[in-house]
Amino acid sequence: MRYLVCIKQTPDTAELPKITPEEAASGKFSVNLVVNPWDELAIEAGLKLMETYGGVTGAITVGDEGAIDALRSALAMGCKDATLVKNVGADVSGVADLLAAAVKKDGDVGVVVTGQMTVDGNSGSLPVVLGRKLGWPVLTGVAKIVDLADDSITVERTVGQARLTVKTSLPAVVSVNKEIGEPRYPTFINIRKAARVKAPVLTADDLGVEVPAPVVHMTNFRKPPARDAKVQLFEGSPQEAAAALVDALLAEKVL
């Protein structure tokens, strides 16, 4: 079976606070770009599928040329192939159209694996939108893949305060969370190999997709108001300090 992992290149989380409104609006950053951390988990899940059930795991991203670095990371972790689909300013709906077309073109994809959300877009909606466009079932919040058969997948999902064991038919889209397991480190040999790889670059035309006009419009990018926090410290013995703190919290009416 073929597994395809959807990844996105996003700013390093340590540098997110440095992003300026101008950078956010233009999508061009001076900060370091890496694989979206949730997507490292998706890669891990994709690789485990390949190791446990056989088959081939590939990675795909919709992005600009620089996103090849994210694909190289996926290859270095162990993905067998990588595809770059050129973005043309699409929003989630357009990205899903491009991915759906690439998935269909790929042939016998049984499972599309995604991360839970992107650290830049923060919506977590892409797997669902992609599933609807493909007409495939979608399992979000997947903590564990319990079983994969020719025509079905069984997973554990965490939803609110429940853990559900759910079975659905293949092909399917799954989005995974952190419980899937620590992403592995790239191996030296794979890093070497990945450095030389030229991922196929597909355009919307190649995929026969007419990218729809965005349906989500974002304007007025700005920094949130700074936290008005001048910390008030309580001193003395732990008992004295704790008592004064509790008094302050009662006065704030947050207890």
């Binding site: 992003i19 956010a24 830049d120 989500v216 419009h217």
Partner: peptide, 12 residues
């Protein structure tokens, strides 16, 4: 967006 580091107005 950007994990709460940027705010935006959104229409759909």
């Amino acid at each position: 967006v950007y994990s709460g580091n940027i705010l935006v107005d959104v229409t759909v």
